[in-house]
């Protein structure tokens, strides 16, 4: 079983790493602004998707709603759904 709180922390670190330090894990977890507004670029987002896929062994579909990539909670929920379906 994957602990949701732990997944969220891991995602926050991944987002910070993907952003090249532009966005901090603390800002991600505070979730006061969408990730775009915090400065997460398109390329950082693709890097993040690669990292999530490689780390969790899931396949993220970009055709779905992109808004789940704007907040760590939504992203964690989506990831939890994918992990549960495995």
């Amino acid at each position: 079983m994957t602990d949701p709180a732990q997944v969220k922390l891991e995602l926050a670190d991944m987002i910070a790493a993907a952003s090249d330090g532009v966005v901090s894990a603390a800002d991600v977890l505070a979730a006061r602004h969408p990730l775009s507004a915090l400065g997460l670029t398109s390329l950082a987002r693709i890097r993040l998707i690669d990292t999530i896929e490689d780390s969790f062994g899931v396949n993220l579909d970009l055709d779905e709603d992109l808004s789940s990539f704007e907040h760590v909670d939504a992203l964690a929920a989506r990831l939890a759904g994918l992990l549960a379906a495995q």
Binding site: S42, L43, R45, I46, I49, L62, D63, L66
Partner: peptide
């Protein structure tokens, strides 16, 4: 275009 660019990069 923003969404299409993400798909293209990916």
């Amino acid at each position: 275009a923003h969404r299409a660019a993400l798909t293209a990069y990916r």
